[in-house]
Amino acid sequence: MAKDLVSTLADLKEQEALKIVEGRLSAGEEPLKILEDARKAMELVGKRFASSEYFMPDLVYSGEILKAVTDMVKPRMSKEAEIKRVGKVVFGTVAGDIHDIGKDIVVFMLDVNGFEVYDLGVDVPAQKFVEKIKESGAPIVGLSGFLALAFDSMKQTIEAIQAAGLRDNVKVMIGGGQISEEIRKYTGADAYGLDAMAGVSLAKKWAGAG
């Protein structure tokens, strides 16, 4: 039996991982099962990143391998078997802040964990969040900010969501920089995450509940 895809992919062994996928596909295995393994591997990658074992380049590399795997698997999938998206998330770095590396990591982790992410970019005005929430109907909002002053922008963004009458429709998480429970209270967010995986856990919890 071929080596375990989950551990091979999580160890970032690209060639081996692709070979396993190839073998399983030609053995006629259900494509969705392969994707499920890939998702589990990415969860491990995320955990290793959170514990500092992996670093940003590893994350980027894992993304490349994942893309290669999906490219191989997708043509074998029937339409209705398209990867089921578990939920929608509107995400962005708040107004006045232009940091994107941390935000990109969370967006990536949400994406590989099956979320449909609307990434609004950086320095995003509150109104743009409001519009996107309306348009997409996403029940989850992620506000990122590295600058301590971004906390004010987070607060203002949540106030704008409230003013638009959408506050009860969405759960808001904040993250980036030195975030704490006190800051969560200050901004009026529902929860905060200290790293990318915490963001994914929150989104999963909320998607499950909603």
Binding site: V60, I98, D100, I101
Partner: peptide, 18 residues
Amino acid sequence: IELAGAPGFDQTFIQASY
């Protein structure tokens, strides 16, 4: 020059972490 607005900065940053 503001780094966060510079083209290709993320890619440069990741390479420079090696």
